Computed example of a mutant assay.
Amino acid sequence: MKLLVVSTPLGPLGSGLGGGVEITLNSLVAGLLDRGHSITVLAAEGSSLGPSCQRAELWLRSGRPQLSSQHADREADVVMPADGLLPQFWRAVLEQASSGRFEAVVNLAYDWLPFWLTPTLALPVFHLVSMGSVNAAMDGVIAQVAAWDQRRLAFHTATQAADFDLPGPPVVVGNGFDLDAYGLCLEPDALLGWVGRVAPEKGLEDAAAAAMQLGRRLAVWGLVEDRAYAAAVEASVPAGTLDWRGFLATDQLQAELGRCQALLNTPKWNEAYGNVVVEAMACGVPVVAYRRGGPGELVQPGLNGWLVEPDDTTALAEAVCRVDGIDRRRCRAWVEQEASRAVFAERLEGWIERGLQICR
């Protein structure tokens, strides 16, 4: 297949501004290239693709970043900057609609415009939905596409898909990771870890509270989106509890993350998947997570971590005390079976090919 993959308009690939979509895009592109498909990526100016994606063509566009739906009020109107990346991306897609260069578009952006355009385009558009329900306008336009042709939609987890009004069972593709980029660490340090964008919906304060209860140090990796929030979290625990390590590329992150005894995952909203959960497991790190969103499907209690009830920091701390009973090799084995790049690419290929058979 000849596919045009449209990136997130939140910022350049490689900046961390796109969150988990950046990991998903690189895995999707590399996996489909490995299966013999031709891939072009449409992304923000300043973007770079990972080493395994260099056979893909990269088209760049400039413009103002789109505001994230995740940070909008639930009933907020759709807002698009006139000189924004989002309209630039989809102007480029429209220009290719009758060119014959591509067989399909794969959209990774969680934005209203591409979903709304889908029934009107001659070029088939497939959406890998990257978030759960956060905004009424997005819920509505996803439901409209589902009612028109649900085969155009795929989700990371069944839990995520359950957020939306779908007429039939969802296509669930999970996510994928280049496991060669993650080393298995069997001898961790006495260190807890937390990875994510530092913003209120990610719940860092709960991980900090659990670390404080245990008298343990918590390493924090991720882009600080809300500095006031970060400062408030740090002020809520004794000095030295939090070890701020910043946003790191995968090779650096996995080397440090693998040294953790456990990863704490404490989102305050329904994560669609939970990339950092799988990245930790790929290094052999058990995960202690809230039974909420995608991580509730990924963590298999007693096998690769433990689940506790959401927002219960005492239960979170108690579960950390049980991670030594988990074989770190089994954490890695679960990822190899369920979330490798090859497995992900095969699922994606099947989804798109089935959809194209109908379109033809």
Rank of each mutant, 00 (worst) to 15 (best):
E279A: 06
E279S: 05
E279L: 02
E279G: 01
A280Q: 09
A280P: 07
A280E: 07
A280D: 09
A280L: 10
M281C: 12
M281W: 13
M281N: 13
M281Q: 13
A282K: 04
A282T: 01
A282H: 05
A282E: 07
C283V: 05
C283H: 01
C283N: 03
G284H: 03
V285H: 10
V285N: 09
V285D: 07
V285R: 09
V285F: 09
P286E: 09
P286Y: 12
V287I: 10
V287P: 00
V287A: 04
V287L: 02
V288C: 05
V288P: 02
V288G: 01
V288K: 05
A289D: 02
A289C: 03
Y290W: 05
R291C: 13
R291N: 14
R291G: 11
R291K: 14
R291E: 12
R292L: 15
R292W: 11
G293A: 06
G293Y: 03
G294P: 10
G294E: 04
P295F: 09
P295L: 05
G296L: 08
E297F: 13
E297M: 10
L298M: 07
L298V: 08
V299E: 03
V299R: 06
V299D: 05
V299P: 03
Q300K: 15
P301A: 07
P301W: 10
P301F: 10
P301M: 04
P301R: 09
G302Y: 14
G302R: 05
L303P: 11
L303C: 14
L303G: 13
L303K: 14
L303V: 15
L303Q: 15
L303E: 15
N304V: 12
N304Y: 13
N304F: 13
G305W: 06
G305P: 04
G305A: 05
G305Q: 06
G305V: 09
W306E: 03
W306A: 03
W306K: 02
L307A: 00
V308L: 06
V308I: 03
V308W: 00
V308N: 04
V308G: 01
E309D: 11
E309M: 11
E309G: 13
E309R: 14
E309T: 14
P310H: 12
P310S: 13
P310L: 10
D311E: 15
D311H: 15
D311R: 15
D311I: 13
D311A: 15
D311M: 14
D312P: 06
D312A: 08
D312K: 08
D312F: 12
T313L: 02
T313M: 06
T314D: 15
T314C: 14
T314W: 14
T314G: 15
T314K: 14
A315W: 02
A315V: 01
L316A: 03
L316V: 01
L316D: 00
L316P: 00
L316G: 02
A317K: 04
A317H: 01
E318I: 06
E318D: 12
E318H: 10
E318C: 07
E318L: 10
